[in-house]
Nucleic acid binder design. Structure first.
Lengths: 205, 205
DNA sequence: CTAGAAAGTGCCACCGGGTGGCATTTTTCG
DNA sequence: CGAAAAATGCCACCCGGTGGCACTTTCTAG
């Protein structure tokens, strides 16, 4: 009993799945998400439409293939660094990690983001994913703030604020072609959350 | 030349539209959003499916029939009170207005919200609408913060934070059966944005 | 009042994403 | 090798949504 089960079956499945993803991304690049039909993808990937839906929940999942694993990783991250002095410290750390990753291959991410923005259904899916993350953050906050309605409320609202600024920051970054320092933008956003927002409206400050 | 044009044509259209909305809401209440088919709605409202799509963009629009007008009203509101001392003052005012309205017929709103949460496509549409509002808030903020990348950035991020806490607060309110004081919750959320978030994590406070 | 333009509606065929069901093939394992 | 199990393909089908065109209703001008 060495590794789990790289049985022939699993191998073929993984291969077919990967090929489908490749084909799909190629077609999406060439003619756009909505303009590409599932049957085109399937025929080019040599699988039947029925099988496609056994590999992927829906068409949108082709764009977010590892939604689950990324969420799980984030969950782990929050759990690992969840006992910092300041609850926002872990978010700063996360910001650093993610901005590094995003900056590293920003060209791919920018292309992907352009695709997402081109289709309502993809934007919707992205919002759904953001919601997952918000729930995770809220849970992490709630873990330290403890029980009680006030604390629970605080955790939910704070998590909402966090994901709110994260979304906005990323959009701004994208809107400027990913040329700004994402980490700096992110840390600034967290600063605002910690220290309060209106400060910058005071010209004297 | 008195009023505009309550021409016979317009009257009939408005009537048919209203009837369709009524029928749809009734059916949604009875069997749920996804379980209700457009053809059922159409046949019971005595219009053809083709005509339905001349009255409404899509099925989801039946749940948010006055999306445009509400957004427009909010836009006007921001413009009217946009020159307060503190930029968050107008948000406090808006919170008061909306919480009053929501509290007034919370039963209807709760039912509607339950419906929305029952269907992914409705949640998606709601998120889209929230995004509209966020854009409006960002524009209002940008109007006072003035030009320049830093200010622009600030406006977008602040607006993201605002809608983030608004969404979270409303969800919490719904989750507790709309029994809490929505205005109080809202004002608290804005407080947090203004004064900064981590304060409540300090047990000594 | 009437004829014809204009606006609105119904109908029908069609598309694309997604599902149920079952027969057929492929893989695994005794 | 042979049978159970897993995976696939195929087909018919549902539902939301669109294009196109014929038909009916309403408006307007003479």
């Amino acid at each position: 009993m060495d590794a789990q089960e790289p049985s022939l079956r699993e191998q073929k499945k993984a291969l077919a799945r990967a090929k489908t993803l490749d084909v799909a991304h190629k077609l999406f690049r060439e003619k756009g998400f909505e303009q590409t039909t599932l049957e085109e993808i399937c025929s080019e990937a040599s699988i039947s439409k029925r099988t496609f839906f056994r590999y992927f929940r829906d068409k949108e999942s082709l764009i977010f293939p590892n939604r689950e694993s990324r969420l799980e990783a984030f969950r782990m991250f929050l759990q690992a660094y969840g006992d910092a002095e300041n609850p926002f410290e872990v978010l700063r750390l996360a910001t650093e990690v993610f901005s590094r990753e995003y900056n590293h291959n920003f060209d791919k991410i920018l292309a992907q983001q352009t695709l997402i923005q081109s289709s309502p259904s993809l934007r919707a899916r992205e919002a759904e994913i953001d919601r997952d993350w918000e729930i995770e953050i809220a849970a992490a906050f709630a873990r330290r703030s403890g029980p009680g309605r006030q604390n629970e409320l605080w955790a939910a609202v704070a998590a909402g604020a966090v994901m709110g600024v994260v979304r906005a920051t990323m959009r701004q970054w994208f809107a400027h072609g990913c040329r700004e320092d994402l980490n700096a933008l992110g840390q600034m956003a967290i600063d605002s959350l910690e220290r309060g927002f209106p400060e910058r409206f005071v010209p004297g400050a």
